[in-house]
């Protein structure tokens, strides 16, 4: 919450919030990002093996979501902060905050469901549309660049994947900033 964002960054965030500008950025980023995943270019594809009403879901966001008592994401390093923060499923909403200088998250601050729909998912479990939720969910920062991309793909993302397996997760919903 207590971010120091320059007026220039704020202006930049407003410009990038325009969908057409964001798509232009996405095109340019796409040219740099082909084959980021390293040597294994085959697209992995798993299937849901049970009805959704019996399946356990997990939420993962790259929108800089974390608990107020956790260390904020490091916005100073130019290559980004590849670490993640675990969000317990039963956390009170007021204990969740967002640290991310590269997008305008005032709307997500006002209603976390804009980017991290834990409340909706809890309701879907009550309505028996989804079977259950994982005991822990995950906040990343996104905007990872340079050598840290390898750190993310080789070490950190597989570590989270292993935790999902350990928690009996059947599917994941990922939401960007």
């Amino acid at each position: 919450m207590h971010e120091t964002i320059s007026w220039l960054q704020k202006l930049s965030n407003r410009i990038y919030a325009i969908p057409a500008v964001a798509q232009w950025w996405a095109r340019r980023a796409a040219q740099r990002s082909a084959a980021l995943d390293g040597e294994d270019n085959a697209m992995p594809f798993a299937r849901l093996h049970k009805p959704l009403s019996a399946a356990r879901g997990v939420l993962i966001t790259t929108g800089g979501v974390h608990l107020t008592e956790q260390a904020p994401f490091d916005m100073e390093t130019p290559q980004g902060d590849p670490a993640y923060r675990e969000i317990p499923v039963n956390v009170a909403p007021e204990h969740i905050t967002i640290t991310h200088n590269y997008y305008d998250h005032r709307d997500a601050d006002a209603d976390l469901n804009v980017i991290f729909p834990l409340a909706h998912f809890q309701e879907l479990v009550q309505q028996k549309i989804i079977g259950s939720l994982a005991p822990r969910h995950y906040g990343f920062m996104g905007h990872i660049d340079g050598e840290l991309v390898t750190t993310l793909t080789q070490r950190i993302a597989p570590e989270v994947a292993a935790k999902l397996r350990a928690d009996g997760v059947d599917f994941a919903l990922l939401t960007p900033a």
Binding site: W25, A29, A30, M43, V149, A172, L174, T175, P176
Partner: peptide, 29 residues
């Protein structure tokens, strides 16, 4: 974010992502 999805899918857990940046999502796969 697509890179995280791929790592999860690789251990046999299906993922679905919401994308606000179409070409980037397509490039990352």
């Amino acid at each position: 974010m697509g890179l995280i999805a791929r790592a999860i899918e690789r251990v046999g857990i299906p993922t679905v992502s919401i994308s606000l940046a179409r070409d980037l999502t397509a490039a990352v796969g």
